[in-house]
Design a protein around this nucleic acid. Structure first.
Lengths: 412, 412
DNA sequence: CTGAAAGCGCTTACAG
DNA sequence: CTGAAAGCGCTTACAG
């Protein structure tokens, strides 16, 4: 078959394969798409030619003809880049771990279904975000929209063109939504803080004020605080933005204003907690000894922080995968089975709330493991847990930890 | 124009617009693509019809006709999902912050250039990874490949189909590469550890053995150690995998084997350092007091760790953006201007190497900021820095910090 | 400046 | 089972 030359340049087309195999392009297409029609001999010849030429169908041609791109678009909201003084190029300031893990969940599910993921970001207040999103829509079979990438009014218009699934949003007549159970999760956390730890004062560092997740978390926390007579500080001073910088700014501002801080700071998400813990540490305030801090999400780094972050785990990757499956069920003008899918959450008790830290199961190690002499004091050993649980990083719903500080009295 | 009905279903096509505007589809196309031909009146009519119908061209048709998809593919390597016992769905175990930030850099640059990003992952030892990558190639105009997603032999084949840029790899005859200057960065770090801090024993927790970055870092560190007579521990026992779990496993294994640890653990990347610090903390070993730890990359969370992580900053997002620009210069069969672009790195001195921690510029705060009474001891104040620098989180090349521990003698 | 027509590379009825 | 042909929705020479 050495005489069968493909096009002068560029990848081989289906015509090249057909010529090499001595069949029509229809047969090539049938073999490649797994129809059972072609007989074995035809199939063999086609497959051989395909292998020889290294043929892979062009995605655009396939999409145009089959009316299916096998691509799902994902739009998320990105922090605008900040120009740094020292280089020609801007750098990103924040990580978006929650978003990234969701996207990974979407991608894995999409892959299984033979889809690829078209990723695009939008910046706050970008005036023609909807145009860019529309362009993405026309490059995909459907769209997953993260929180707050498009005004609700535009949403309706968009959903007339392609199926749309929102993440952590609100289901509409024409769009479906996937979220996790923020209310139940926050209620569980609040009860742990109030009843297990006996904390009497708390604050809520909010996420975006109009985010449904933020609202649900705030309300659940407020309800528990009210029913237990616990003081809950919230409001403009405590307004964050789901970012570490937002959490850090809230704390720094309050401290420099001389505002007295509560015993626990409950954060709208882990990223915020990251910033809050950072700011507290900068000011020499011990967590959880002086102030306990909690998050929401359980992003991968949560367990690597010092102290490890007590938080509500969302099944983050699964949220993404669920969004993909839901979207796929809508592709082809089908109605989704459900319009609002809610996944469960669970409390992860770690050290930042005041629960005993989990240390290595091997127990205390001899100092002889240190090759180098050190002139620094050995680190203060924190209170050894009464009920040392090897798997305490895993949620144990039925189990109550020993309170890390003594209750300060009930319902002051 | 209420009488102009679009197709029964689906988004309007260029034919719908042409009919509504009373012109040919060619004119519609010309107006939309910014050709200067159409006269003002034609232009107005087209634009009005476009607005009324909400027309946006189909990406696949456009791609097929214009021979340009305006999509760049990005392939990265993902940790395989682990089935958890408690649910139907697997969960991701690790974050991939370095990869995620690079991808964000690619995406931002791509967006500026009118491109979108097609994202796909590959798993270690996936046998038909190359087929999936090929499919992605046929859905894009070019490919950015992260480290080790494809065997080198397949690379050559792939690059015959589409332009390929590798990240942190090696340039070949047919592919270009973008990386940062690992050698210089590691040399700077090693000198800081050896000469500024006076450390005499160190270890290197490696990344993937065949990663060019890993090799460059290891060699640079070894060269500095050798020329200063410092002990460097490395080898199979110290083999990591660029993941937090890899770093944690190395430390845990060594500790349970009773191996004596060195004064500094230099990690191949930040993610590894995260795991190392986590494992050390679990075993009650103080960082940096007993063992100093350093990373490489400066991923966003590095500065949020306790202690803050001393590391080499790579311009991560810029690496991605550069890869996109390079790739775009290759799209259309152009030769890239450069085949191997190397971006600079710089040392970020933070606390984990033993440099003085940076605390809030406001100085010490009254305990009265705490609303709740606390029964826990105030946190131990770490050695106050002699030269407290407000901007110490920013690299200050010319400045040397006070050593955090006394030199243990020169060139033992 | 504008329209009719060809063509991008596929898939899929429609005949045979 | 197989091939010739139409068609997916665009862009762009080619004529006028």
């Amino acid at each position: 078959m050495a005489d069968t030359q493909p096009n002068i340049q560029g990848p081989p087309t289906i015509y090249d394969v057909a010529r090499a195999a001595g069949v029509s392009i229809a047969s090539v297409s049938r073999v490649l798409n797994g129809h059972r029609n072609p007989r074995q001999e035809t199939r063999d010849r086609v497959l051989r030619a395909v292998a020889e030429l290294g043929y892979v169908p062009d995605g655009a041609a396939r999409a145009l003809s089959a009316r299916l791109k096998e691509v799902v678009g994902v739009v998320f909201r990105r922090v605008p880049w900040v120009e740094t003084g020292d280089g020609a190029f801007p750098e990103e300031e924040e990580s978006l771990q929650f978003t990234d893990v969701i996207n990974r969940g979407i991608e894995v599910a999409a892959q299984r279904g033979g889809y690829n993921l078209l990723l695009g970001s939008v910046v706050i207040d970008e005036h023609d975000a909807h145009r860019r999103i529309m362009t993405m829509a026309r490059k995909s079979d459907g769209l997953v929209l993260h929180d707050r990438v498009l005004e609700p009014s535009r949403l309706a218009e968009l959903s007339r063109h392609v199926p749309v699934v929102t993440m952590a949003g609100v289901a509409t007549q024409t769009t479906a939504n996937v979220r996790s159970d923020s209310g139940t999760g926050m209620t569980e956390l609040a009860r742990h803080l109030i009843h297990d730890h006996g904390y009497l004062t708390m604050a809520y560092v909010a996420g975006h004020a109009d985010s449904p997740d933020n609202i649900a978390r705030r309300l659940a926390l407020a309800a528990e605080a009210a029913s237990s007579g616990v003081l809950l500080m919230e409001g403009p001073q405590w307004q964050g933005n789901y970012l570490a910088s937002g959490g850090a700014n809230v704390v720094s501002r309050l401290l420099s204003d001389g505002v007295r801080l509560p015993r626990v700071i409950v954060c709208a998400n882990d990223q915020t907690a990251l910033g809050v813990m950072h700011a507290l540490a900068q000011h020499g305030i011990d967590v959880p000894g002086e102030i306990a801090v909690t998050g929401f999400d359980d992003i991968p780094v949560a367990r690597h922080l010092r102290p490890q972050l007590t938080t509500i785990r969302q099944p983050i990757a699964e949220l993404g995968a669920t969004a993909f499956e839901l979207l796929r069920s809508m592709i082809g003008n089908h109605e989704p089975a459900e319009h609002d899918i809610v996944l469960p959450t669970r409390l992860m008790r770690r050290a930042s709330c005041g629960c005993p830290p989990v240390t290595a199961p091997t127990g205390q190690l001899s100092r002889s493991v240190l090759l180098a002499k050190s002139d620094s004091a050995a680190p203060a050993e924190r209170d050894a847990p009464a009920d040392r649980r090897p798997g305490a990083d895993i949620a144990v719903p039925g189990q109550r930890p020993a309170p890390a500080d003594s209750p300060e009295g009930a319902k002051s």
